[in-house]
Amino acid sequence: MTPTLTSFLAVSAALFCTGLLAALSRRHAIFILIGIELMLAAANLNFVAFWRFGPEPQQITGVMVAIFSIAIAAAEAAVGLALVIAVYRHYRTTSVDKLDQLKG
């Protein structure tokens, strides 16, 4: 038997929820970025899987969107990690619980 689209979507859903777990339950800012990267990777897997199983494989929009999504994720990671370094330089911590200066 060969894997169906359902199995790919199930793996992608599990990957997305693992990313959600990392983004919601960790206190370190870099863990939150790791979680966001995992969620973006799950979305990419969905794009490529729907292209592969779709009715018109000559239209390669799914692959194109995945490539652009990877490029945008790289830009997001660069800016996010620069923000982490800037925050660390200012507050000497990267725990998001301690960054409560804006709290009323």
Binding site: L21, R26, R92, T93, S95
Partner: peptide, 26 residues
């Protein structure tokens, strides 16, 4: 990511606490 970890290494030791409500939501 590895470079950022090494640059902000000083407060890594105390990464205690795992928010279980996040696990429930996930």
């Amino acid at each position: 990511i590895v470079f950022t970890i090494l640059l902000t290494r000083r407060d890594i030791e105390k990464d205690r606490g795992f928010n279980w409500s996040g696990a429930v939501i996930a």
